[in-house]
Structure formats: C-alpha cells, structure tokens
C-alpha cells in the first residue's frame, strides 16, 4: 500500500513538472510581454528597467528555474495588469469557482443517480428512453449554448433568476460564499445547473449501464430468490456495485468541472478563476495564465490521486491486487 502510494505521488509530481515546463515555455517563449505591460511609446530606459526587473534578459531555462523556485516559496509572480501577486489574485477567485463546481457536482449527483437507476431498472419504459435522450443532449450540446438558453428562458422570459453575476456573499472561514443565503442561491442555481448538465448526462449513462448490468446478474437473481425486496436489491446490491465507477468519474469530473467552469463563468459573468483566465488570455497577462494553468493541472492531478486511493478502498478486489 505504501509503495503504491509513493509510486502514485511520484507520478503526479512528474505530470505537474512536465506541464509546468510546457506551459512556461509555451507562454513565455512567444511574443514579448513587455509590450503588453507598458505603453509602446514609453522610453527605452523604462523598458530596460522592466526587462531587468522581470528577468526577461536571462535565458529561458534560467527564467524557468527562478519561476519554479519562487513558486515553491509561494510566489507565482505579479500580474502585469492588476499589479497584484498572482497567487492572491487567483486565491481570491477560487472560492467562487469551487462553490460553483461543487454545487454543480451536487446537482449532477442528486439528479443523475436516481434518474440513471430508474433508466436502468426499467430500461424499456418510455420514461427511461426520455431520460436517455436527455442525457445524450446533456453531453453533446455545447454547454455555453445551453447557458444562453437557460438565461433566455429563466432570466429574461420568466424572470425567476438573475441573468448573471454572483449576488451577495458572506464570509465563512475566510472565504466569500453565496450559498449561505437564499438570494445567493438564486444567483448560483442557473450557472450550477448549466455546469452540471454534462456530468449529469455522463452520470445517468454510467448509472444506467451499471444498473442494467447488476440487475441482470446472478447475484441479483439469487437475492430475489432469497426474498429480498426490490428496494433492498437496489439499495444494497446495485448501489454498492455502481458506487465504484461513479466515485471514479465523480472524482475525475470534479477536475474537469473546474476547467469547464471557464465557459459557464463567462456566460453567467460569474467572478471565478475561469473568468480571470479568459480575461488574462485576452490581454496576454502571462503570469496569471501560467499560474492558473499550473494550479489547475496541480488540482487535477491531486484529485486523480485521491480518487485512485478511494477506488482501492471501495473495491475489495483491487485492494487485494495492490497488497500482493
């Protein structure tokens, strides 16, 4: 188990380092960041001073090592545009994104698992077919477009929800959250549902496939032959068996939800990390771009690692394999 853990952590570390090199070189090697930072008409001396200050005159690999060294000390550089430490900038936007992503995952789970169970339990029913049709739409229709439709129907036409923005927040444990108030929920519900749609489609499919497989298994027939009620058959056998793939996907998708929040945040003008990165790419604010990408990759890899470990706990067969 320890060996397995160390191996996975090393692997995760390699990915983060590789991505940091690619991102750093890719973003810094192209174009001249100084042009973005200052008025092109400003004098040469100021220019030179800035180049010196940011170290743009040194070789790229040296810049990279300085960057990595600083990063390990919690210094991710300073935004060209906001003139703020990048780390603070991103961290100040993190709660909004996390809140949105977690609410989306919650919606996807609370809707997706029951719907998938039903679709798998009665696979030939009309309702099951409708659910499956919905799930196909859920992950083939581009999410920004669904976001627009949601805004048009629920904000513009019906006026049930605000069309965008985050609304009031309260500070909880140093983070500004909007899910603490009813009004905050009215702001988060539409974007969270939008962000949830893709996972919802995926979860419905997975849950249905797992349910169909388990319902057709010998052990479910055996359980029925023992006189277990249908509720018990589903609650005990089906749920336990589908929990493994679902936890995996849930974990992996948490990472991609953070990434896809970029789109939803732009559509709903939600002030999270995603909105920040899009704005930064448009104005070529490189330190923010690099820091965001490395941070997201880091989060992603960490989540994968945790999912791997939980997976081992859930499936006794894997645990045995890892031990031997």
């Amino acid at each position: 188990m320890i060996g397995f853990l160390i191996q996975r952590v090393l692997q995760a570390l390699m990915v983060v380092i590789a991505m940091s090199i690619i991102v750093f070189l890719g973003v810094y090697a192209i174009g001249n960041p100084i042009d973005v930072m200052i008025d092109p008409a400003s004098d040469q001396a100021l220019r030179e001073a800035l180049i010196q200050r940011y170290g743009f005159d040194r070789p790229l690999f040296e810049q990279y090592f300085i960057f990595m060294n600083n990063m390990l000390h919690g210094d991710l550089g300073e935004s060209f545009i906001y003139r703020l430490p990048v780390l603070n900038l991103i961290l100040s936007r993190l709660p909004a994104t996390l809140e949105l992503a977690l609410t989306a995952m919650l919606i996807a789970t609370l809707l997706g698992i029951p719907l998938g169970l039903w679709a798998g339990y009665k696979p030939d029913s009309l309702s099951a077919k409708a659910i499956m049709g919905f799930s196909v739409l859920g992950f083939s229709v581009p999410s920004f477009w669904v976001g627009l439709l949601l805004i048009m129907v629920f904000a513009v036409e019906l006026g049930w929800f605000p069309s965008g923005g985050r609304g009031p927040t309260t500070e909880v444990l140093g983070m500004n959250l909007s899910i603490t108030s009813l009004e905050g929920w009215s702001y988060i519900l539409l974007p969270a549902f939008n962000l949830a749609l893709f996972k919802l489609g995926l979860l419905i499919r997975l849950t249905r496939a797992g349910t169909v497989e388990v319902m057709g298994s010998d052990y479910v027939r055996f359980a029925r032959a023992q006189g277990l009620s249908e509720g018990k058959v589903v609650g005990l056998h089906v749920l336990k068996n589908i929990s493994i793939p679902i936890v995996t996907v849930f974990g992996l998708e948490l990472g991609s939800t953070l990434a896809f929040a970029v789109v939803t945040e732009t559509v709903f003008n939600w002030p999270g990390m995603g909105k920040l990165i899009i704005d930064s790419i448009t104005v070529l604010d490189r330190p923010v771009m690099v820091a965001y990408l490395i941070l997201v990759v880091f989060l992603f890899v960490m989540i994968n690692l945790v999912v791997d470990l939980i997976y081992g706990q859930l499936d006794p067969r894997i645990r045995v394999k890892a031990a031997s």
């Binding site: 052990y219 055996f222 336990k240």
Partner: peptide
C-alpha cells in the same frame, strides 16, 4: 462465483 455479490 456469480451468485454472491463480489463487493459485499
């Protein structure tokens, strides 16, 4: 091999 649920 099939009549007992492997994960319970």
């Amino acid at each position: 091999m099939m009549t007992l649920n492997p994960v319970l």
